[in-house]
Amino acid sequence: MLTLENVSLNYGSFKALDGVTLHAKQGELVVLLGANGAGKSSIFLTISGIHRAAGGSIQYDGQQLIGRKPSAIVQAGVVQCPEGRKLFPMMSVQKNLMLGAYVHRRDGEGNRQRLEDVYQLFPILREKKDDPAGSLSGGQQQMVAIGRALMGRPKMLLLDEPSLGLAPLVIKQTFEVIQRINQAGTTVLLAEQNAFAALKIAHRAYVLENGRIVMEGDPESLLHNDEVRRAYIGA
């Protein structure tokens, strides 16, 4: 469904991505593991068309994404939920959610149904729909961020560090929701530092260091890999 071949990205003289090759099949939940600065967000921003790759190919569903506008990439079905949530804190929860439906703004009925789906997934957001997004707890704000991405009707959802800054119980609940989204048919590419939680729900995983893929495999083998355990699990 998504294939990156030898993708590179430069920020001035700094090489943020160096020959990244990875893929996600339809229906998979694939994890990108890596420390801060490893290149996870750069991969997502390049897939989303926000940064232009310096080389390589990004194919989604038979289409080349490099050179396409971010809005066209969302319309094709690839939607990103960014690191740090990036909500509009003074706007209501519902208005933040509806911003995710911008590329589908002419489909009022479809957007109403999608909003109802989000409220069923996150019932607390229905109760707080008129509250400013900035007044919510960190976990609830993450729900808004994921819900906003779902309003874009993703076939492929890019989730960038959804557990960042959340309490352990909220992290557990967040990953359960991500698993439900995947099981309902959405392909998920999940960037995470929380290796233990992410690998528990993944089908496959890649390890990223300094803009390069240094390891890949099934979750079980990576969970028992000494290097992965030392770097990301602390064992």
Rank of each mutant, 00 (worst) to 15 (best):
L150G: 00
G138T: 06
P154Y: 00
R148G: 00
M156S: 05
L166I: 10
G134L: 10
I146R: 09
G134I: 11
R153G: 01
R148I: 02
I146N: 10
M151Q: 00
M143H: 06
Q140G: 01
S135T: 15
L157H: 04
L150T: 00
E161W: 07
G165A: 14
L166H: 09
R153N: 06
P154G: 04
M143T: 05
G139F: 02
G147R: 03
I146Y: 05
G134T: 05
M151R: 01
G138Q: 10
G147I: 08
L136A: 11
I146P: 07
A149H: 02
L164R: 00
R153F: 06
G147D: 14
Q140V: 01
S135H: 13
L158W: 08
L164A: 15
I146Q: 07
L166W: 10
G138L: 05
S163W: 02
M156Q: 13
M143K: 01
I146K: 07
D160I: 04
G138D: 09
R153A: 14
G139C: 09
S137Q: 09
I146M: 15
G147S: 08
P154D: 04
M143Y: 04
P162R: 12
G147T: 03
G138C: 11
G139Q: 07
L150P: 03
M156L: 15
P154T: 02
V144P: 04
Q141E: 05
S137P: 09
G138N: 13
L136F: 11
L164M: 15
G134N: 13
G165T: 14
L159E: 05
E161T: 13
S135R: 08
D160C: 11
Q142T: 14
K155F: 01
G165V: 14
L159F: 06
G165F: 14
P162T: 07
Q142E: 15
Q142I: 13
G165E: 12
M143G: 06
M156V: 15
R153W: 02
L136W: 13
P162F: 10
E161P: 14
A145Y: 12
G147H: 00
Q142C: 08
V144H: 11
G147Q: 11
D160G: 13
L136M: 15
Q140L: 04
G147Y: 09
L164C: 04
A145T: 07
A145C: 11
A145L: 03
A145K: 13
K155N: 12
L150M: 15
K155Y: 07
K155Q: 15
Q140K: 02
R148L: 01
L166C: 14
M143N: 10
L136Q: 08
G139I: 14
G134E: 09
P154Q: 00
G134M: 08
G139W: 05
P162E: 01
M151H: 04
G152N: 00
M151P: 00
Q142F: 04
G139E: 10
L150C: 05
A149M: 02
M151G: 09
M156A: 13
Q140T: 07
S163F: 01
I146T: 13
E161K: 11
L158Y: 03
P154R: 00
V144A: 10
S135D: 11
G165R: 08
L136S: 11
A145G: 11
P162M: 03
L166R: 12
R153D: 02
L158Q: 03
S163Q: 06
V144L: 04
M143D: 06
I146V: 15
G165S: 15
S163Y: 02
R148A: 02
R153V: 03
L159W: 04
L150S: 08
L158G: 07
L166T: 12
G152E: 10
A149I: 00
